[in-house]
């Protein structure tokens, strides 16, 4: 059951080719991890899925429909996104961050929204921080609010753009634990991350992107042990060497 399908997707920024004929399919309840050097187009690929960026050529289908055919705001309701630098609404508490979409996008009443937001935040272990402002939270707590905010919209697909890159090492674990739980619950996830442990133990697919093109894609364990491309081997050994 394919949820997301890229078919020959190409994207330029000005003269620069950022996505180069990208094609792949992601099934429901699958977790895909994308890795690749800086500037290879990982963020752009994610942003094309929820139309924060528009593609030049090729099609992206979500649930069988070309995404160009659905209303962008409706598409974004169904596709949640978690950001590297959190992007929490700075003027709202943890609870307020989650209720905003519930109230203004999903039309919940104030009470319904508070109740639902409270449950989402408890789910990610933040039941005690409901009334804290973003500036009063640790990085790991902020990112968990970011995840709760996305989950509250009942998305069918979650996009993660380096969700742990801005975190101190000791805070990374708490965010990965939440992501692992989500994967176990059957959430479909497309994650840009360089947490190779997470990729090996949780992901169903690993994709190596370079210069906007997919170099290799497959079972994570196979890419680690038996990469077909020299580039993949080189990149992975460089990554693992660093850790």
């Amino acid at each position: 059951m394919t949820l997301l399908a890229f078919d020959g997707v190409t994207k330029h920024y000005g003269e620069e080719l950022v996505l180069d004929a990208v094609s792949f399919e992601l099934d429901r309840s699958e977790v895909e991890v994308i890795i690749g050097p800086s500037g290879s187009g990982k963020s752009t690929l994610l942003r094309c899925v929820n139309r924060l960026a528009e593609v030049d050529n090729g099609t992206i289908r979500f649930d069988g429909e070309p995404i160009g055919d659905t209303d962008a705001d409706e598409l974004r309701r169904q596709v949640g996104m978690v950001f590297q630098d959190f992007n929490l609404f700075a003027h709202r508490t943890a609870l307020g961050n989650v209720t905003l979409g519930l109230r203004r996008v999903r039309g919940f009443s104030k009470e319904e929204a508070r109740e639902r937001a409270r449950r989402e935040l408890e789910q990610v272990g933040l039941g005690a921080q409901l009334d804290s402002y973003p500036a009063e939270l640790s990085g790991g707590q902020k990112q968990r609010v970011g995840i709760a905010r996305a989950l509250a919209m009942d998305p069918e697909l979650l996009l993660f753009d380096e969700p742990t890159s801005a975190l101190d090492p000791e805070l990374i674990g708490e965010v990965l634990a939440v992501m692992r739980e989500l994967a176990d619950d059957g959430m479909t996830m497309l994650c840009v991350t360089h947490e190779l442990g997470f990729a090996r133990s949780v992901a169903d697919r690993l994709t190596f992107l370079e210069a906007g093109a997919i170099v290799e894609r497959g079972d994570p364990e196979r890419l680690f042990t038996d990469p077909r491309s020299d580039r993949t081997a080189e990149y992975l050994s460089r990554l693992t060497g660093e850790y």
Partner: peptide, 15 residues
């Protein structure tokens, strides 16, 4: 105001 704020708002489906 940081541009990421509007991006995040749009990402949850706000116009």
């Amino acid at each position: 105001v940081d541009a990421g704020q509007l991006t995040a708002a749009r990402a949850i489906g706000l116009g």
